[in-house]
Simulated scan of single mutants.
Amino acid sequence: MDLPVYTKQQLALRNGQDKPQIWVAYKGFIYDMTESRLWRNGKHYEHWAGQDLTDELPDAPHTEAVFEKFTPIGKIK
């Protein structure tokens, strides 16, 4: 899969506040959560969009399988 590469700064802007897109990164891939009702306004429980959530997943009540519902739109540099 040949995906565009984004910097952490570009990811950070897609937080639902600075820009309307709601993106999160996980294990090097960026996912667009804009259409997810669980990410309204860029917030999902105590997590904010525009960040790499790889290290935060162990604290979540779900597994990484949740990312299988979303198609990666890019990679994090």
Score class of each variant (00 low, 15 high):
Ile22Ala: 01
His44Ala: 11
Lys27Glu: 14
Val66Tyr: 05
Pro20Gln: 08
Leu13His: 04
Tyr45Thr: 12
Leu3Ile: 03
Arg40Asp: 12
Leu3Asn: 02
Arg14Cys: 09
Ser36Gln: 11
Val66Arg: 03
Leu13Cys: 07
Met33Gly: 02
Val66Phe: 08
Tyr26Asn: 01
Tyr6Arg: 06
Gly16His: 12
His47Ile: 13
Ile30Trp: 09
Val24Ile: 15
Gly42Gln: 10
Pro72Asp: 07
Pro61Asn: 11
Pro4Glu: 13
Pro4Val: 10
Lys8Gly: 02
Tyr6Ser: 00
Glu56Ile: 03
Lys19Trp: 00
Lys77Val: 02
Pro4Met: 12
Ala12Thr: 06
Gly16Thr: 04
Met33Ile: 06
Gly50Glu: 06
Lys8Thr: 12
Tyr31Asn: 02
Lys8Glu: 14
Thr34Cys: 11
Trp39His: 11
Pro58Arg: 04
Val66Trp: 03
Asp52Ala: 08
Leu11Thr: 04
Lys77Ala: 13
Gln10Leu: 02
Trp39Asp: 09
Val24His: 00
Asn41Cys: 06
Ala25Phe: 02
Asp18Cys: 08
Lys19Gln: 14
Arg14His: 08
Asp2Lys: 14
Gln17Gly: 00
Gly50Trp: 01
Asp52Glu: 11
Asp18Gly: 05
Ala65Val: 07
Tyr31Arg: 01
Asp32Tyr: 01
Asp32Cys: 04
Pro61Lys: 12
Asp59Asn: 14
Lys43Thr: 12
Ile22Val: 15
Phe29Gln: 14
Pro20Ala: 04
Pro58Gly: 08
Lys8Gln: 13
Gly28Ile: 10
Glu64Lys: 05
Glu46Val: 10
Glu35Lys: 10
Gln51Phe: 02
Gly16Leu: 12
Ala12Leu: 12
Phe29Thr: 00
Ala12Tyr: 08
His62Ala: 08
Pro58Phe: 05
Glu56Val: 06
Gln9Asn: 12
Tyr31Ala: 02
Ile30Leu: 15
Glu35Gly: 04
Leu57Pro: 04
Trp39Tyr: 12
Ser36Met: 10
Trp23Gly: 03
Pro4Thr: 14
Leu57Val: 09
Gln51Lys: 14
Arg40Gln: 15
Tyr26Met: 01
Gln17Val: 09
Lys75Arg: 15
Gln51Thr: 13
Met1Arg: 09
His44Gly: 10
Ala49Thr: 07
Asp32Ile: 00
Tyr31Trp: 04
Pro58Met: 04
His47Ala: 14
Trp39Lys: 14
Ile76Cys: 04
His62Val: 07
Glu64Met: 03
